[in-house]
Each structure stands twice: as C-alpha cells, then as structure tokens.
Amino acid sequence: MRYGTGLAMSSACCKTAVCIVLSISCGVTWGQSSPPAKKTISIHLSQPGQSGRLRIHHYKGSITVNGYDGSLVMVTAAYRERGAGEGERKPGPELSAVERNNEVTVYSDSERYTVDLDILVPRNMDLHLQTYDNGVIEVANVQGELEINNTNGPVTLINVSGAAVVSTVDGNILVKFAGVTAGAPMAFTSITGDIDLTFPEHVDMLLKMNTDYGDIFHDTRLTVAPDKSGTSMKIGVLNRGGTETLIKTLNGNIYIR
C-alpha cells in the first residue's frame, strides 16, 4: 500500500463526505526549503482541548513525538541521508494528513524512502505508531493510550502516562511512566530486546514476566514468584497487585524499577 498525497486524499474524499482533508484546509506550511529538505504540516483538531488520537503506519524511518501545550498537531518530515540502495528522489518527502473526529492519520512516502517524522502533539493524545525498519520510536510527555510497534528498532517512552501496549522484535523497550491508568491491561513484548520499565512509586500492578535466555532484575518493591498454572511465567506483584501486565522477551533482560 502506498499513500501518495493526492491519491490518498481523493480516494478518502470519495468514500466519505465527513472526512476532512487537512493538508489543504488546515494550512500547509512548507519548511524553509534549503537542505536538508523538510516539510511541515499543522493540523487543527476538530475538538481542540479534548483528547485526540494520532495514527501513523510508517515503514522506514523514525517517529519522534513530543507532547506540548499547544492545540495543533505539527508534523515535520525529512528524508534521511540517502541510503546506498536508494535511487534518485524528490527534494522533499511526500507528507499529508487527514483529521476526522480528533483522529489524525499521517501519511508519507516512507515505504520507498527512509523518512524521519518529528511531531508535536497536545499532551492529551492517544498514539498508534508503527514502523518497521531503520528507525526508532521515541515519545515524551504524552498522556493517553499508547500502542507502539517497532519491528527492527527500539521504543523509548519517557514521562508518559496512561496505558501502553508496546512490541518490538529486535529493539529494546524503555518506558518511564509518570502514571498509569488503573484497570487497563498493558503489554511489552520483544524477541531480542531488553524490556526496561519504570513505574511510579505507589502503583498497584501485577506483572506476568517471561524471558527465556535473559534475566529479570527488579528492586525490592517487587515480589516475584513462579506462576502456579504451570507456564514458565513469573508473577511479580507491585504493591497491592492489580490489572495484568504482560512482559515477555525471548533473549532480552527484563528490568522493573
């Protein structure tokens, strides 16, 4: 699937009249176009001040998201240094976005070229971010539900609150929670990556942990016991226990702080 700017917009408009296409209606601002070529778009939320959602299905490149006090979603896209196998390309990446009921979906030509996205969002935002290759996903200062997948790279979430469901194959997962939503299950899984989670002092959690070739490290807050139901899981209880959080890696270590 390819989300070329014009194509994605016109087909979306044909399908639903409700759909608001933003790269035009909400003002496209082109970055000062000297090298490295960047493109920036700002997206108005239809209900500013209320919690929104950002959805990016990225292929090659990094996604960096920072929460800030504004109400616009601002996306800057830049081509990475041209890789050895990549042919000629346009001076700037293709970039577009669609907003509908406070949900923003960002499209770029990351399937063909490595595109790094640098994004500012209002703090109250759910994120659904996905990238496959050649990049990292970094999120800071955001509150909401975070669904993050990075197949071949790390995921780092700093000062986030809400609930997170994170998965990588070959990347480390590092999360520092400022707060967690009570009653919302979470999951952190990887094949070769380490999983390093820091929870607030008084959070109640039940952690189901498993690493085949790694170790589990934790501080004294956590009591760990084998799972009684016969699986290879270890059950860790933080304070009074609570909703289940799955932490699973094959080769990596698990750190609970």
């Binding site: 999951a187 899984t189 699973k248």
Partner: peptide, 14 residues
C-alpha cells in the same frame, strides 16, 4: 491488528 493482543489470545486459548 495488534501483536500483543494476539499473543495474549494464545495464552488464553492455551
């Protein structure tokens, strides 16, 4: 669509 949901489903079905 989510890997972790599918993973948890394996656990439940087990």
């Amino acid at each position: 669509p989510n890997v972790n949901v599918r993973l948890a489903t394996v656990e439940t079905l087990s």
